[in-house]
Design a protein around this nucleic acid. Structure first.
Lengths: 346, 346
DNA sequence: ACATTTACCGAAAACGTTTTCGGTAAGTTT
DNA sequence: AAACTTACCGAAAACGTTTTCGGTAAATGT
């Protein structure tokens, strides 16, 4: 019942396996009649080449790996979605792994992928990763690697990113332009680059619009959770009752804030405007719906695979790897948790 | 720079590849000194066996495939999360594919997996799938397959499910027990088994509690979207202003309903109770937070892999496949969109 | 009639591993 | 001293595919 091989076909037809192989691949030095006989028999028995044997010879699996910190996450699953679909178009399958934001796991999972001889790796770094030799080693051994979203510039390889600083600038700018005078920022765990970038975007926006930067307006959410937002909102309004804008690191936190403010009878956006980050699915379902920053995960995944593919081809052709960085634009999704724009609308 | 092989080790040490192979695998007919020499050299050069070559011999890849209708979906990504983690524990990697709810894609993706000679498949059927020969064929050719969530009993293989009917019964029962007298049900697209099961659970609950079943209280959401819920809520309240409970097929629909009722100044749960299904992440972030049914995706994934593993082993040992069905229990997550239980609490 | 081209096919090696089946040399038993 | 173990190692085949390099026979050119 199991699959037929070249050898079996050759035996049935009384010809050599080389001829069968060539007939199926339409080599020019095979008689048309022979080709037809072979191809018909192959079709009849539903011949498909044995992938192991092909890989063993070609040293290619047509499988890539993708390692993300967490899979159950709208942003990352969108990226994977984009990558899988793009990969499929080019005949590649995708193994998905998670580092669970652990440096050790990241190393372990990468080793699993390398040992399986997959063709390339798409990688988003864990928050804990601050050393990069494990990745450099892999690249030096000839494995094409593309970094996306959680990246470091200390590794020389293609990268796909969004400009967090620019996006955070836009978010803060939106609050300013809609009339906010005193804006708090809920930031994330200290180390990751995204935390710093979003904070910097916030700060630069204030400076650009000649607004004072006040350190006490920075609050930290350790877990980036709904609950964190809920609790911090209470603290913020207690310490700074005159606040009129909050820029949260990420949507769930913003939604926690929103819920708390509503419970405390603080009008959103009349008294306090709220802007989130990431455009999670649920952000359009809150009341009022949450203004936020859209991070196009699907496109990031698509682009990352395309960069990977380029290097897969380079490798096959013996060319050196590229290491370009692609920036995917973000946009402000204006909903009802911020006030209407005051400047004349075009 | 690339990986060292048995042959190269054997050349360096001046012994045969067979000896090297056996030394690394601790065969008893190899001298201890030789073993040590081989193992040290292997470690020094970071030897890892070539996976293709192993697979070619053993006919095993240690890779499984998982095919879901959509990846970007909290429920499915949780399932995949559970499957990946469980698989990893047993040395398996996971290729993820999507059918995008298309019958043709399902066939195509399954073929990709089969052609790659992966060891087994975890599958959740697309909504469009009503014929199952493509799956039966795969199983008959010896591929271990496990069905989960979107299943059919017309295929003889292991299955992991939740009892939708029972869960829907509990949901409706909860509304009844908290005092609802006239309950509408928003159902999904007609064909899928889940739609029918949840509808049946609703209906049976009504009958059980001697409440009339009224056909006009059944509304259909084609897209199972937030927007559908939003719009249907308006329709429902217009046609049945005296309704006091709504059981929605799935959380986003319920949240759409919630938002609309709030906009229409209808008190939830005072005037109308709402219960959803699936316990999406966002359901605890709404105000009032949504009462819903928890479907433990992670556990489903875990269990499905365990069943698959059992058959992977059976296959290796030449035993026939099992075909047990595991039911994962659901639970009602009581939040604020339904009233407090009236009966004495135990 | 001989030389040369063309058309077609197959042997063989290679990818890297695993395992069976001997085989040799040393040591042990009668 | 002959027979027999034991300890250790290697040759070889197998998994299935791909591609190079000839090789043979027929067809064509002088």
């Amino acid at each position: 019942m199991s699959k037929i091989t070249l050898k079996e076909i050759s035996k049935i037809l009384g010809i050599s396996t080389s001829t069968v192989s060539k007939a199926l691949k339409n080599y020019s030095d095979i008689n048309v009649d022979t080709k037809i006989r072979v191809q018909e028999l192959a079709k009849k028995h539903n011949y498909t080449p044995n992938a192991f044997a092909q890989s063993l010879r070609s040293r290619e699996t047509k499988i890539i790996g993708i390692l993300v910190p967490e899979l159950v996450h709208h942003f990352f699953s969108s990226i994977i979605d984009g990558a899988i679909n793009e990969a499929e178009k080019h005949g590649y399958l995708v193994i998905v792994l998670q580092s669970h934001e652990s440096y050790e796991d990241e190393i372990k999972q990468l080793k699993l992928l390398v040992d399986k001889n997959i063709d390339g790796i798409m990688l988003s770094l864990s928050d804990k990763t601050v050393k990069y030799d494990h990745i450099r080693t892999i690249i030096n051994e000839g494995m094409p690697v593309v970094l996306f979203d959680k990246i470091t510039h200390l590794i020389d390889c293609p990268k796909v990113i969004i400009d967090d600083r620019k996006a955070a600038f836009s978010a803060t700018e939106h609050l300013i332009k809609t009339g906010c005078k005193k804006i708090a920022h809920i930031t994330g765990p200290l180390k990751p680059k995204t935390t710093i970038d979003r904070f910097m975007g916030y700060k630069i926006a204030l400076e650009t619009y000649n607004m004072p930067f006040n350190k006490t307006l920075i609050y930290t959410s350790e877990n980036l959770s709904f609950e964190d937002g809920y609790n911090l909102a209470g603290q913020i309004m207690a310490e700074h009752p005159d606040i009129d804008g909050i820029f949260a690191f990420i949507d769930p936190v913003a939604i926690g804030v929103l819920k708390r403010l509503k419970e405390d009878k603080i009008k959103v956006p009349k008294q306090v405007s709220i802007i989130g980050f990431s455009n999670w699915f649920m952000s359009r379902t809150t009341s009022p719906a949450l203004t936020t920053i859209d991070q196009p995960g699907y496109q990031i995944g698509r682009n990352a695979f395309q960069l990977l593919l380029k290097n897969l081809n380079h490798k096959r052709e013996g060319k050196p790897f590229t290491s370009e960085t692609v920036e995917i634009p973000t946009s402000v999704i204006i909903r009802q948790s911020t006030r209407a724009i005051m400047a004349p609308v075009i």
